[in-house]
Amino acid sequence: MEDIYETINELLDKKEKFVLATVFKKSRSVSREEITKMVIKKDLSIIGTIGGGIFEATAMKLSSKVFENGAYIIKKCSLTSERAEKLEAACGGDIKLLLEYVDYNDSKMVEMYKNVQKLKRRGDNFVIVTRIPEEGKSIKGIDKWVCSESSLYGEEDDKVQCVIRKIREEFKNITIQYIDLDEGHYLIEPVLNSKTLYIIGAGHVSQKIAEVTKILDFKTIVIDDRKEFANRERFKDVEEVKVVPSFENMLKYVNVDNNSYIVIVTRGHAYDKEVLGQMLKTDAKYIGMIGSKAKREFVYNCLLDEGYTVEDLKRVHSPIGITIFAQTPEEIAISIVAELIKVERESFNQKNKVEAMII
């Protein structure tokens, strides 16, 4: 799934105007998270999803009005239990939507999203601050700021400084908020670059990897088919521990996108081939498999026989980790996490080098 901010910048580069729908509040079991965004184009085609047909149909209908006059709309959308049942949904829920007009002619808006793209590609955490003007007005680029831990992008504005101070005071714990201050109404959207690390296998090396990644802003999820290994006693600080019935159909249990990192360390490497084949069907940013060169060649040959290509296998980091002659589980974990950091950072640094050469 392409990052929504990359999509926004692509459309702005193409000089397309569109409506951006943002879920900024939800209740009950709505499937999409707060901050989820969807682009609605002039022809009412959409990019992304905000959690189902009713919500998306409402957003598309309202977008016609936004296209017409440029004014933002805030709308509460509800899906009652009765309607959910008719739609074969699990249960009801409601969301609050912000629909705003994004115009490529607004240079400040374009600049703001370029800064967002830069921070996303660099892997930085940041917060988007949007001042909500009075009803019937448009949200312009001058109404938006991007705040990282060390930088602030946007128009100079004394009134927004108190909002920025509040954000900086609790930067790591900031949540999406719609706040009403004397200075005005503001939507606060943290973009904490949710890099997701899936550790498939819950052995000793996995434990040590999780201990390191907890301090590096990786959302870490551990998966195994053994409850005695995949449990909270052994993995206290990860976001999630999943026990699966088997390593078949892994894509039912993981939501892999291009900001996902996969570390394959199943017990005795018995299921590494099976898992690797499934992960190669995703657009994960990193896929690493532990094991010797001999084991790697055996797995690769099996996958080639199954129809995978040499190009597919070039995506795999195996043997896994940076070469530091690691031996202990702790050392192996350090080498693997170092490689995750290298992959995370190198694409941004390479892009910067290319841009510098062009300039």
Score class of each variant (00 low, 15 high):
residue 77 C to A: 14
residue 119 L to E: 10
residue 130 T to N: 06
residue 98 L to D: 14
residue 112 M to P: 03
residue 76 K to G: 02
residue 73 I to D: 05
residue 78 S to Q: 09
residue 128 I to M: 08
residue 79 L to R: 11
residue 145 W to R: 06
residue 75 K to A: 08
residue 110 V to Y: 12
residue 122 R to L: 04
residue 131 R to G: 03
residue 128 I to F: 01
residue 117 Q to I: 01
residue 87 L to K: 01
residue 148 S to P: 06
residue 74 I to H: 08
residue 105 N to W: 03
residue 85 E to F: 12
residue 72 Y to D: 01
residue 80 T to V: 01
residue 115 N to I: 00
residue 141 G to A: 02
residue 136 G to D: 11
residue 110 V to S: 06
residue 85 E to C: 05
residue 72 Y to F: 07
residue 64 S to P: 07
residue 90 A to Q: 10
residue 77 C to F: 05
residue 137 K to F: 13
residue 106 D to W: 08
residue 98 L to A: 12
residue 93 G to W: 07
residue 82 E to L: 13
residue 66 V to Q: 13
residue 99 L to F: 15
residue 129 V to D: 00
residue 82 E to G: 08
residue 112 M to N: 13
residue 146 V to L: 13
residue 110 V to W: 06
residue 85 E to H: 09
residue 126 F to A: 00
residue 84 A to F: 11
residue 102 V to K: 05
residue 72 Y to G: 01
residue 100 E to T: 06
residue 104 Y to S: 02
residue 85 E to Q: 10
residue 83 R to M: 15
residue 142 I to F: 01
residue 102 V to Y: 05
residue 110 V to I: 09
residue 134 E to R: 07
residue 128 I to W: 00
residue 74 I to S: 07
residue 67 F to H: 14
residue 74 I to Y: 08
residue 70 G to L: 05
residue 132 I to E: 05
residue 89 A to F: 15
residue 100 E to V: 01
residue 101 Y to V: 04
residue 80 T to I: 09
residue 86 K to R: 11
residue 117 Q to Y: 11
residue 64 S to Q: 15
residue 117 Q to V: 02
residue 121 R to I: 01
residue 99 L to M: 14
residue 133 P to V: 04
residue 78 S to V: 13
residue 108 K to C: 07
residue 101 Y to F: 15
residue 113 Y to D: 05
residue 83 R to K: 14
residue 140 K to T: 09
residue 105 N to S: 04
residue 68 E to D: 15
residue 88 E to Q: 09
residue 119 L to P: 00
residue 97 L to T: 10
residue 102 V to P: 07
residue 144 K to H: 03
residue 146 V to C: 10
residue 132 I to W: 03
residue 118 K to V: 01
residue 69 N to P: 08
residue 103 D to W: 03
residue 80 T to N: 12
residue 106 D to V: 05
residue 66 V to F: 09
residue 88 E to F: 14
residue 116 V to L: 07
residue 96 K to F: 11
residue 147 C to F: 00
residue 119 L to R: 04
residue 121 R to P: 00
residue 96 K to R: 13
residue 145 W to E: 05
residue 77 C to M: 08
residue 125 N to S: 07
residue 100 E to S: 10
residue 111 E to H: 01
residue 86 K to Q: 11
residue 138 S to W: 03
residue 96 K to V: 07
residue 81 S to Q: 10
residue 133 P to Y: 06
residue 115 N to C: 02
residue 130 T to Q: 03
residue 75 K to P: 06
residue 130 T to W: 00
residue 136 G to S: 12
residue 84 A to Y: 12
residue 83 R to I: 14
residue 142 I to N: 10
residue 71 A to T: 09
residue 81 S to D: 15
residue 92 G to S: 06
residue 108 K to L: 10
residue 103 D to V: 01
residue 80 T to D: 14
residue 96 K to P: 05
residue 148 S to Y: 04
residue 105 N to C: 02
residue 99 L to R: 14
residue 120 K to A: 06
residue 118 K to D: 10
residue 120 K to I: 00
residue 72 Y to L: 02
residue 66 V to T: 11
residue 145 W to A: 03
residue 127 V to S: 03
residue 122 R to I: 02
residue 106 D to K: 00
residue 76 K to Q: 10
residue 99 L to C: 15
